[in-house]
């Protein structure tokens, strides 16, 4: 991989081990200017370790990590990023406004307070002590701190965990606006709809290795499955024995069928049950693809 100016952060053959656990197994990762890259993977897959290496909190045991073609620890590189880390709590004795003022002082040309407030939606929190905030409000305050510089690259490690729907929408809007300004984002999340809504590119990590990478569409296309939902009196066990049916679950009078050949199965369903209603066929989402990819990786590793 050549180092051109379109790469803002990079891991090359980066390995990291904690005692007996191999957290990253020689991983290659490029973050390009202006893109939203979602890092997905089950717990313990190495996502947070990958971010720790990229932001310079840890150093790889093998391979290397660079940020704007410099060492991630360098002050020059750190001035160009913003970060929202996992498991962070800010000082309880300071107000959100004081925290923002402090973080703004680290930058030569900080974002204006008004702009930070508008983006992070913390206008009502400025005068409040961090200790008095709810979990979701604390997460918003942490997002505000990530925005204090004019970052060219944001690291958001599970940014919307614990947020209600409104707050999540606000954060998504802010992320889209920042991306519109040319900011790149590295995002980890447990909400696959979040990756689906925001990401240009998805990298799936399992057991410290990249097991799939591509656009959301490409990742989804790796799974041919579709979901059929309907209200029907047919016996679930019987449908499960049909060819091409992967699984059948029944919830009251509703049936959900996962299949690789939706057309064939739908034709037979309609043929066998004239009273069938509320038929719905959905293509597999990122969630199904993710489960499939990571369980394959699990089998390979076993």
């Amino acid at each position: 991989m050549n180092s051109d100016s379109s790469t803002v952060a990079r891991l090359s053959k980066a390995g990291k081990r904690y005692a007996a656990v191999l957290a990253l197994d020689g991983i290659d990762l490029d973050v390009r200017r202006g893109e939203v890259l979602a890092l997905l993977g089950p717990n313990g897959a190495g996502k947070t370790t990958a971010i720790s290496l990229l932001v310079g909190l840890q150093q790889p045991d093998s391979g290397n990590a660079t940020l704007f073609d410099a060492a991630p620890q360098s002050l020059a590189a750190r001035r160009r990023i913003g970060a929202m880390l996992q498991a962070t709590s800010l000082p309880e004795t300071l107000t959100v406004g004081e925290l923002i003022e402090l973080f703004r002082s680290y930058y030569a040309r900080p974002r204006t307070v008004a702009d930070i407030v508008a983006l992070a939606g913390v206008g009502d929190l400025l005068g409040r002590l961090y200790a008095k905030l709810s979990g979701g409000q604390q997460r918003r305050a942490q997002f505000a701190l990530a925005l204090c510089g004019h970052a060219e690259l944001l690291f958001l490690d599970e940014p919307t965990t614990g947020l209600d729907i409104d707050a999540r929408e606000t954060m998504w809007r802010a992320i889209r606006r920042l991306v519109g300004e040319g900011c790149a984002v590295v995002l980890t999340t447990h909400y696959l709809e979040e990756a689906e809504a925001l990401a240009d590119r998805v990298v799936v990590i399992a057991h410290g290795r990249v097991v799939a990478a591509g656009s959301v569409g490409e990742i989804r296309a790796r799974v041919a499955q579709k979901r059929i939902r309907c209200v029907s009196a047919l016996a679930g066990d019987a449908i499960a024995s049909w060819p091409d049916v992967r699984s059948v679950t029944r919830d009251g009078d509703r049936i959900e069928i996962v299949t690789d050949a939706a057309e064939v199965v739908v034709r037979r369903l309609l043929g066998e049950d004239a009273t069938l209603s509320e038929l719905e066929v959905r293509r597999a989402g990122l969630a199904e693809a993710f489960v499939e990819i990571t369980s394959e990786a699990q089998k390979e590793a076993a």
Partner: peptide, 10 residues
Amino acid sequence: GWLALKRVAP
């Protein structure tokens, strides 16, 4: 994690 966040910030 406050120290880590400050170390990532400049």
